[in-house]
Simulated assay, not measured.
Amino acid sequence: MYQYISFCFADKVFKSLDIDEIANTLVSGGTKEEFRKIYQEKIESWKVKDVKFCITGGSRTGKSSFINAITGCQKGQKGFATVSVYGDTTNKAACYTHPKHSKFQLWDLPRFGTVQHKSEGYVNDMEFTKFDYVLIFFDVISENDIWLAKQLKRLMKSFCFVRSKLDQDITNEMQHDCNTIACNIRTKALGDLEKEQISGVDVFVISSADTTIGNFESLINHMENNLDEGKYAAVIYSLASISKPVIGEKFKVLHKRISMIAVVSMLFKDDREITTHSRSDIILTNLKNEIMFYINTFELTPPVVQKLMEHSTFQMRDILCRSGEEIKKIVKNSLESKNEKIFSFPQMPSLFRESEILLNTILVGLQNDALYVFGQLPTFKGKVVEQENISISNV
């Protein structure tokens, strides 16, 4: 009985191979080059793609707070967007580079329709054509908001409206039914847009202070639908793990990598004469790098985990806060417990299957650990670090 693996990304199937013939096909030059091309395009492209978000709208609409929620920066840290209760703090376009991914930029634009920034020329002056995604922040839909929406439609730009102070709305309404409040605000805003003959535009009611309430998950889904796959991956990998929906999206995007990673980890520049020891070291290094990427993406870094480790049971306790070499050893022991000769060339199909199972098990465990940390430390922020530029070796 043949077993098949399919490499599916979005709605396109790139390759189906008989898993029992992997050992033969992996040493075929053409097949290796095809795998590498797909891998670079679908798995690694997020590292090199520029992602530019535009954050615009009226004063005191929560733009700076949203930027800080996305970057995970706190007051006093480099990249923190100043939040003021006195009105506009943005007199000119300000670029905030995400601390975990240098190619992900959030541009905070000044309010327009003022003496300093008149509507005429605003779209050209602020170079809206360079942005991948535009978020218009509002308290009440204004004439300026309507005008900008029409300009963005003319430019065929992906954009949405965001009301970002749901937590304050709940307090002001003196009730705790956040869903009803969010629905009422959203319905009113959509009605205002419809009156101005602006259709097909989404409105999201969120709280930058508490992303567990409101439409934050729907906003993330809107980004997914309006960004190409590589750019969306860059956004998700970079986001602070600030809510269950974000952690869930990270899991979804990471899970799509597993089959490809398992295969690519076994591609070699050398031929089938490579020694079993060399082969095992290359494969283990690649699998270790992938696991460390999961840990960094979920922000399960030592400052976070060590704070809870003494009083908590983590599902992935054995690999958290471990060195790369220690993780390699754990992976090696796990795979060899299934088959002591699993790294020999004839066992490549078995190695693929077991590697895929192991990565999936670890990813599920790390997601659960991230959800636990989120629940236990809602206000604790780990040190923001640049995503490591980890790549598959010897590919």
Rank of each mutant, 00 (worst) to 15 (best):
W46T: 00
W46C: 00
W46L: 00
W46K: 00
K47V: 00
V48Y: 06
K49N: 11
K49T: 10
V51F: 01
V51E: 01
F53C: 01
C54F: 04
I55M: 11
G57A: 03
G57L: 02
G58R: 07
G58T: 05
S59E: 08
R60I: 04
R60S: 15
T61M: 02
T61F: 00
G62P: 05
G62K: 01
K63M: 09
S64C: 06
S64D: 04
S65C: 07
S65V: 03
S65F: 03
S65R: 02
F66D: 09
I67W: 00
I67N: 00
I67Y: 00
N68S: 07
A69N: 07
A69G: 07
G72E: 03
G72Y: 02
G72M: 06
G72N: 06
G72I: 06
C73S: 13
Q74P: 03
Q74M: 13
K75Y: 11
K75A: 05
Q77D: 10
Q77V: 02
K78T: 12
K78M: 11
K78Q: 12
G79T: 09
G79M: 12
G79N: 10
G79Q: 09
F80T: 05
F80N: 04
F80H: 12
A81G: 04
A81N: 05
T82H: 14
V83A: 10
S84L: 03
S84D: 04
S84R: 04
S84I: 03
S84W: 02
V85T: 12
V85P: 09
V85I: 09
Y86F: 10
Y86L: 04
Y86R: 02
Y86Q: 05
Y86W: 05
Y86G: 03
Y86S: 06
Y86I: 02
G87Y: 03
D88C: 05
D88Y: 01
D88H: 06
D88P: 14
D88K: 08
T89W: 08
T90P: 09
N91P: 07
N91I: 07
N91F: 14
N91W: 10
K92D: 15
K92V: 12
K92C: 11
K92F: 14
A94H: 13
A94N: 13
A94K: 15
Y96E: 14
T97I: 15
H98M: 13
H98R: 11
H98N: 14
P99H: 08
P99F: 08
P99Y: 07
K100G: 15
H101A: 11
H101Y: 06
S102Y: 11
S102Q: 15
S102D: 15
S102E: 15
K103G: 07
K103H: 09
F104Y: 14
F104I: 13
